[in-house]
């Protein structure tokens, strides 16, 4: 009991320290990029403006508005104050749209695409990997090379292959968008069908890539565990095969769970490729536009979300480990 408390409070303390550090970095790093976001906005706004003094004035107006003419520590204090009030500020690149509004409209697409894809990929991969380790022979011989091949395809490669084959050549699926180009979102069967059809290619481009890697990892871990002493001992004791397999997979699963947690944490970044190639809405492409446009508030807010997701996923996994595998808790508490 006391051990758990100490373990959890220790984890929680580290969680908070990391969060604060990440928070500061999220603020500083985008601002260290070379370039000047206000100049980008000014350039866009003053296209065709003839007066030089006018251009300067527009620049100064925006610099004042975004506070980029203030010293960085002052900017940080303003930023902190706003964040505490839940205010992410106004986006630079989509000014005057609030950052929160941009995130709100894109993050659900990302989660709805990535979360199921990661889970499905993980489950399929692990099942296949475990089966390969257990069944060996033909199954393993076919699955392994395919897994290695697919998992080594870069994500954009898979997305482009699917796009070219199923959308451009066969025309089974659309090439772009989250729903039909001729649709207005509404709650009709046609619309839902359209969303589902548009969902397929981005979804499978993520699933297929992750299956391979997961299967390879799970297969290796399972083979290792299958040859462990406790397995041989259990067999020697005459314990049923199914029961042993249960033990084996539970042990083999541990590192895989870390992988799952991390991929859930980093799904926003991982969504980028599918989102860009299929013009799918979501946070990944939002973040990319933000980086290209040096949109500090939007970058900071997006990275803050990613940081939080990774940290929370890690934290939960650590907690879960403490429960699933008492050895870890014991080792850390000592």
């Amino acid at each position: 009991m006391k051990g758990y408390l100490k373990y959890f409070s220790g984890k929680l303390a580290w969680f908070l320290v990391t969060l604060v550090a990440a928070f500061i970095l999220n603020f500083i790093l985008p601002r260290l990029m070379p370039g000047d976001p206000v100049a980008i906005i000014t350039q866009r706004v003053v296209q065709g403006m003839t007066s030089q003094a006018g251009v300067q004035k527009v620049y100064e107006q925006y610099a004042e508005l975004f506070g980029t003419n203030k010293p960085i520590h002052e900017q940080f204090i303003i930023y902190m104050r706003n964040i505490v009030q839940g205010n992410f500020g106004l986006s630079f690149s989509q000014y005057p749209r609030p950052v929160a509004d941009i995130l709100k409209s894109s993050i659900w697409w990302t989660i709805a695409l990535q979360f199921p894809a990661i889970i499905v990929g993980w489950l399929l991969g692990n099942t296949l990997g475990a089966l390969a380790a257990y069944l060996k022979k033909g199954f393993d011989k076919v699955l392994m090379p395919i897994s290695i091949f697919i998992s080594n395809l870069p994500a954009f490669g898979m997305a482009v292959i699917l796009l070219v084959i199923f959308a451009v050549r066969l025309k089974w699926f659309p090439t772009a968008g989250g729903y039909g180009f001729d649709m207005i979102p509404n709650f009709s069967w046609d619309y839902i069908k359209s969303v589902l059809i548009h969902y397929q290619l981005p979804f499978w481009s993520i699933v297929l890539i992750s299956i391979g890697g997961q299967a390879i990892g799970m297969r290796a871990m399972s083979i290792y565990e299958l040859n462990a002493d406790y397995v041989k001992y259990s067999r020697f004791l005459g314990i049923k095969d199914r029961k042993i397999i249960g033990y084996v997979f539970r042990n083999a699963m541990l590192p895989q769970i870390t992988g799952l947690a991390l991929s859930i944490g980093t799904m926003v970044g991982g969504a980028l490729v599918a989102e860009i190639i299929f013009s799918y809405p979501g946070l990944g492409s939002t973040l990319l536009t933000a980086v290209m446009g040096q949109d500090y508030p939007l970058i900071s807010a997006s990275t803050l979300i990613i940081t939080l997701m990774v940290l929370i996923a890690n934290f939960l996994i650590e907690i879960l480990y403490g429960v699933i595998d008492p050895r870890i808790k014991a080792a850390q508490v000592e």
Binding site: W109, L123, L196, Y199
Partner: peptide, 26 residues
Amino acid sequence: VEEVEEVVEEVVEEVVEEPEVEEPEE
């Protein structure tokens, strides 16, 4: 988690269905 395979299979079924019921967020 007595029989991992079964559990895994069940969840697979559940999750594979998930995208089907997923409502578009707009």
